[in-house]
Amino acid sequence: METIAVFGAGTIGSCEATLITGHGMPCLVLGHSESGLARCRKAIEQNWNDLISNGTAAKQNKDAAMRLLTMSTNPADLSDCTFVFEAVVEDVESKRAVYECIEDHTGRDTIIASCTSSMDAETLAGLVRHPEQLLIAHPFQPVHMLPLVEVVCHTRTASSTVQRVCGLLELLHREVVVLRKSVPGFLVNRLAQALFRESIHLLEQGVTTAEDIDRAVKYAVGMRYASIGLLEYYDAVGFELEAAIAKNIYPSLCDSKEIQQTTLNGLSSGKTGQTAGQGLYDWSQKDEDEFRLRKQSPFLQTVQFWTMPG
C-alpha cells in the first residue's frame, strides 16, 4: 500500500485529499502556510457536506475521513511517503522547488505524479533527479468526483512507475487513459479547446447565443458521447457520411491560431468569468451554490463505489 501525500493546498489538492481519505486511505497535505491549510480543510469539509446533503455519504464517513487527514507545512513530514501528488501553480520554477523539496525528504523510489493541466511532461522530467519516477496524472474538476485521469509519460518514465500510478488510481476508482508521449493539452483539453474556439467563433459571427450553445452541448453532444464515445459514434455513422459532412463543414470551421476577440475584450475589461461576476454570462444572476451542486450532479453515482471509512 502506498503512503500518500498531496503537495499543494488549493482546489485540486483539497479534492485529491477528499478522494484519498474517502477511500479509507491516510493522506498528508503539505502546504506553504497555515492560512492556506485552513482554507484547504474548509474546502474538504465542504466537499463532504455536499456529499452528505445529496445522500451519497453520511456524517460518520466524513468524520472518519477527516481523522485520516494530516495537514502540515513541514516538508520533513514527507519522509515516509512513497507517492506524492504535486498540485502547485503552473510555473517551472515553483515546480522545480517543490520537486527538490520532495526528493530531499523522501526515499529513492517515491513517485511524483504531477496534476498539471498544461505543462509538458518532458519539461517536468528535466526538473527532477530521478525522472523515471515522475509522470503526469492530470485529473478533472471536481477532482474527487469526475473519474477520468490522464496519465502522461515522457521518454524516461519507467514502466514500473506507470504500473504503480495506474494501480493506485484504480484503487481510487478512477478511469485512466495513458498517453505514451506528451502533447500540449493532452487529450481532453485539446478536444475542449476545439469546442471553445468554435463556440466563441459562432458567438462573434452572431449565429446564436451562449445559452443555446450550452443547451446544444448538454442535450446532444454531451448525452450522445457519454454513452458510446466519440469515435464509436464516428464508426457508427460511417466514413462515407462523415466524409460528406466534413467536406461541407470543414471550410467554414474556425481555424484561428490567435486568442479570439471576445476573450481579449473580456481580459481588457475585467469581465473574465465567474470569479469576476461577468464573462459570457452575468454571474450576478446565478446562484453559485446551485451551480456548484449542478456541476457535481452527473458524477454523484461514481461516489457509490468508494470504500468509505466509518
Results as ranks from 00 to 15, higher is better:
280 L>K: 03
278 Q>S: 07
260 Q>W: 06
276 A>M: 08
248 N>M: 11
262 T>W: 00
281 Y>S: 06
256 S>H: 05
259 I>V: 13
261 Q>K: 12
261 Q>T: 12
244 A>S: 09
255 D>N: 15
252 S>D: 13
268 S>A: 13
265 N>G: 02
249 I>W: 06
263 T>K: 04
249 I>P: 06
254 C>F: 00
256 S>K: 01
249 I>L: 14
240 E>L: 13
245 I>Y: 01
250 Y>D: 15
242 E>R: 11
271 K>R: 12
262 T>H: 00
274 Q>C: 13
274 Q>L: 13
263 T>W: 09
276 A>D: 07
245 I>P: 02
240 E>V: 13
258 E>V: 15
277 G>I: 09
277 G>M: 11
269 S>Q: 02
260 Q>D: 11
279 G>D: 01
261 Q>H: 09
254 C>W: 02
270 G>L: 00
271 K>T: 00
267 L>A: 08
281 Y>R: 02
272 T>S: 03
253 L>M: 11
274 Q>T: 09
251 P>W: 07
274 Q>R: 15
260 Q>F: 08
247 K>H: 15
277 G>Q: 12
258 E>Q: 15
258 E>C: 14
267 L>G: 02
268 S>R: 11
253 L>T: 05
280 L>M: 04
268 S>N: 09
279 G>M: 03
240 E>W: 13
259 I>Y: 01
274 Q>G: 10
258 E>N: 13
273 G>T: 04
250 Y>N: 15
255 D>I: 12
271 K>F: 00
244 A>E: 09
247 K>G: 08
256 S>R: 06
273 G>C: 07
244 A>T: 05
241 L>D: 01
280 L>Q: 01
255 D>R: 15
244 A>C: 04
247 K>C: 12
262 T>C: 00
245 I>G: 05
256 S>M: 02
241 L>P: 06
253 L>C: 08
268 S>D: 08
248 N>Q: 13
251 P>T: 06
266 G>Y: 00
242 E>M: 14
271 K>M: 02
278 Q>E: 08
243 A>W: 08
276 A>W: 07
281 Y>T: 01
243 A>K: 13
268 S>L: 09
262 T>I: 07
271 K>H: 10
263 T>Y: 06
260 Q>M: 15
270 G>K: 02
250 Y>P: 04
251 P>A: 07
274 Q>M: 14
240 E>F: 14
269 S>P: 04
266 G>F: 03
274 Q>D: 06
269 S>R: 00
248 N>C: 10
257 K>R: 14
252 S>T: 12
280 L>A: 03
275 T>H: 09
279 G>Y: 05
250 Y>S: 11
258 E>M: 14
248 N>K: 11
275 T>L: 12
249 I>Y: 08
263 T>P: 05
259 I>A: 09
267 L>S: 05
246 A>E: 09
279 G>F: 00
248 N>L: 14
253 L>I: 05
264 L>Q: 08
245 I>F: 03
257 K>T: 12
281 Y>N: 05
255 D>G: 14
